[in-house]
């Protein structure tokens, strides 16, 4: 075979992938294993081979953690506006909102309401990382704050499951940043009322969300291998001009450094929450 020039034979590309019917199989984003969808669903959308936790939608998360159809979302009708008339390079902010509303079938990146968890009354907030990266603008901040205030007013335990790669939402500028104060201040009152708040961190929870309510749980749980931190890994690498160590900013790293109480496998999450609520007197909804 000549070293230079054209090879004397023709390469015929043969796809090694067998054609798969749509929607029957899913490839694991971490180990590449092809998983039968039915198996994935039965396994709480966790890869049976490497235990990679697929990102859940808000409704999947609610179904995972609450009893039957006990979840009743607050009907607040809150909708985002475009106070900055934000001018980005492509598409307006309202267009992006509409796109993600269609994609996720959600009005906004957070869904909050009353629910029962193994019979115990709770207030539950969930962010959906598919909706503008789960970022917090005025509406997400207001929804989370109202959920906290509802829990305080009704003496209920509060659980917030965070999934936000975006932190504070750029398109609403400083109005977004101020939601960090709003949610944290509401938690100060909930805390003052001696009510429990359990923060559950999922992949990914970063920046403004992690630097406000998500970090303020009495107990903080994390799903395995979730990316959790303040500054995104890419920005850190660019700043310090070096590669980040393996496992940096993952749940296990936070556990090791003392910022997470427990790393909990998804299949054990509901029972762990129930167990914690038992300790805090969650059944009566009041300190006992």
């Amino acid at each position: 075979m000549p070293i230079f020039g054209k090879p004397k034979y023709t390469v015929v590309k043969v796809s090694r992938k067998k054609t798969m019917p749509e929607g029957l199989w899913t490839k694991c984003e971490d180990c590449g294993e092809i998983v039968y969808n039915k198996v994935l669903e039965e396994n709480f959308r966790v890869c049976p081979k490497c235990q990679y936790h697929f990102i859940l939608t808000a409704s999947q998360r609610i179904a995972l953690l609450t009893d039957g159809s006990s979840f009743k979302a607050f009907e607040d009708g809150l909708r985002s506006l475009d106070p900055l008339k934000f001018k980005g390079p492509k598409g307006s902010y309202p267009e992006k909102l509409k796109e993600d509303q269609i994609l996720t079938n959600l009005e906004e990146a957070a869904l909050c309401g009353r629910a029962r968890l193994e019979g115990k009354k709770i207030v539950l907030g969930v962010t959906d990382s598919r909706f503008m990266m789960g970022s917090m603008g005025s509406v997400v901040g207001e929804k989370v704050t109202r959920a906290i205030e509802c829990a305080t007013a009704e003496s209920l335990p509060l659980i917030i499951v965070s999934g936000s790669g975006g932190g504070a939402r750029m398109q609403e500028g400083m109005l977004s940043l101020m939601q960090m104060v709003k949610t944290s201040a509401a938690l100060a009152k909930h805390d003052d009322a001696k009510l429990p708040f359990i923060s559950v961190l999922t992949n990914p929870t970063m920046a403004g969300v992690m630097a406000s309510f998500a970090s303020l749980g009495d107990v903080i749980l994390a799903e395995p291998k979730a990316l959790i931190g303040f500054t995104g890994p890419r920005v850190i690498e660019q700043t310090i001009h070096q590669r980040l160590p393996q496992g940096f900013q993952r749940s296990e790293f936070l556990l090791e450094h003392g910022f997470v109480d427990r790393v909990v496998h998804r299949k054990a999450l509901k029972s762990m929450l129930a167990q914690l609520l038992d300790y805090f007197g969650g059944t009566k909804g009041k300190k006992s």
């Binding site: 506006l81 005025s138 704050t145 104060v181 709003k182 201040a185």
Partner: peptide, 9 residues
């Protein structure tokens, strides 16, 4: 701080 934010209800 609770009043900060712009949205439609």
């Amino acid at each position: 701080f609770s009043k900060m934010g712009v949205y439609k209800e």
